[in-house]
Simulated scan of single mutants.
Amino acid sequence: MRSLLQTATLATLTLLPMAGMADVRIYGRLDLAPLYQTNPRDGVNWRLEEVSANRFGFKGSEKLGKDLDAFFQLEHRFYLDTGAERSGARMWTDKAWVGLKSRSFGALSMGRVLTVGNSIVGGSDTEAMTDSAGAINSRKGRIENNMNNGLFYESPWFTPVGKLKTRVSAHYVLPEVKDIENPWGLGFEFRQAPFLWDIGYQHDVYRDASAPAAEDRKSNSWFTGAAWDFGQYEVKATYAHSKGYKGVVSDHSLYRMTTGSLSLNAHFGRWDLGVMGTKKLEKNTSGVVQPEINKFAVGYWYNFSKRTKFMPTIAYEELSGPGYKPRSNGFGRARDKRENVYIEIGFRHEF
Rank of each mutant, 00 (worst) to 15 (best):
residue 86 R to T: 07
residue 125 D to G: 09
residue 306 K to L: 09
residue 75 E to F: 01
residue 285 T to M: 14
residue 223 F to V: 03
residue 209 A to T: 14
residue 335 R to K: 09
residue 78 F to T: 00
residue 110 M to C: 09
residue 146 N to H: 13
residue 152 F to V: 00
residue 62 E to S: 13
residue 234 E to Q: 14
residue 132 S to E: 00
residue 258 T to N: 14
residue 326 P to N: 10
residue 196 L to N: 03
residue 117 G to M: 04
residue 49 E to S: 15
residue 286 S to F: 06
residue 182 N to M: 13
residue 252 H to Q: 12
residue 227 A to H: 10
residue 37 Q to H: 05
residue 271 W to V: 15
residue 243 K to M: 15
residue 328 S to Y: 13
residue 68 L to C: 03
residue 286 S to R: 13
residue 90 R to H: 03
residue 56 F to G: 00
residue 73 Q to S: 10
residue 67 D to A: 04
residue 305 S to P: 05
residue 268 F to L: 13
residue 291 P to F: 02
residue 267 H to L: 14
residue 85 E to Y: 05
residue 320 S to F: 09
residue 106 G to H: 03
residue 78 F to V: 00
residue 47 R to E: 13
residue 75 E to W: 00
residue 107 A to I: 01
residue 51 V to P: 01
residue 215 E to L: 05
residue 213 A to G: 10
residue 156 P to K: 04
residue 332 G to A: 06
residue 170 A to V: 11
residue 344 E to K: 12
residue 298 V to F: 06
residue 50 E to G: 12
residue 294 N to T: 14
residue 91 M to N: 01
residue 185 G to V: 03
residue 287 G to F: 10
residue 234 E to I: 09
residue 124 S to T: 12
residue 134 G to F: 03
residue 136 I to W: 10
residue 101 K to D: 08
residue 86 R to G: 06
residue 1 M to C: 06
residue 289 V to I: 14
residue 11 A to D: 06
residue 55 R to N: 06
residue 37 Q to K: 15
residue 333 R to N: 13
residue 213 A to Y: 05
residue 84 A to I: 04
residue 194 P to M: 05
residue 103 R to H: 15
residue 328 S to C: 13
residue 253 S to P: 08
residue 293 I to R: 08
residue 263 S to M: 10
residue 330 G to K: 07
residue 26 I to A: 05
residue 84 A to N: 14
residue 307 R to W: 11
residue 303 N to T: 09
residue 176 E to H: 07
residue 250 S to P: 13
residue 38 T to M: 08
residue 75 E to A: 00
residue 104 S to F: 14
residue 131 D to A: 12
residue 134 G to P: 04
residue 227 A to Q: 08
residue 88 G to N: 02
residue 29 R to Y: 05
residue 329 N to C: 03
residue 109 S to R: 09
residue 225 G to E: 07
residue 293 I to M: 02
residue 211 A to L: 11
residue 39 N to L: 07
residue 32 L to F: 08
residue 176 E to C: 00
residue 263 S to R: 01
residue 204 D to V: 04
residue 84 A to G: 11
residue 96 A to H: 05
residue 7 T to G: 03
residue 274 G to K: 01
residue 118 N to L: 04
residue 39 N to R: 10
residue 230 F to V: 10
residue 29 R to I: 11
residue 293 I to A: 07
residue 92 W to V: 01
residue 17 P to R: 06
residue 314 I to W: 08
residue 68 L to E: 00
residue 227 A to S: 15
residue 78 F to Y: 08
residue 74 L to G: 02
residue 123 G to T: 03
residue 23 D to I: 00
residue 313 T to P: 03
residue 263 S to N: 08
residue 101 K to R: 14
residue 121 V to D: 05
residue 346 G to S: 06
residue 319 L to P: 00
residue 83 G to F: 06
residue 241 H to V: 12
residue 170 A to Y: 00
residue 111 G to C: 07
residue 287 G to Q: 15
residue 37 Q to F: 02
residue 245 Y to G: 04
residue 148 N to P: 12
residue 102 S to A: 08
residue 193 A to G: 09
residue 302 Y to H: 10
residue 314 I to K: 01
residue 176 E to Q: 10
residue 279 K to G: 14
residue 120 I to S: 01
residue 173 V to W: 02
residue 324 Y to C: 11
residue 191 R to Q: 13
residue 86 R to F: 02
residue 314 I to N: 07
residue 178 K to H: 09
residue 149 N to P: 00
residue 203 H to N: 15
residue 232 Q to I: 14
residue 23 D to M: 08
residue 48 L to T: 15
residue 320 S to G: 04
residue 44 V to Y: 12
residue 133 A to F: 04
residue 236 K to G: 11
residue 204 D to M: 00
residue 321 G to V: 05
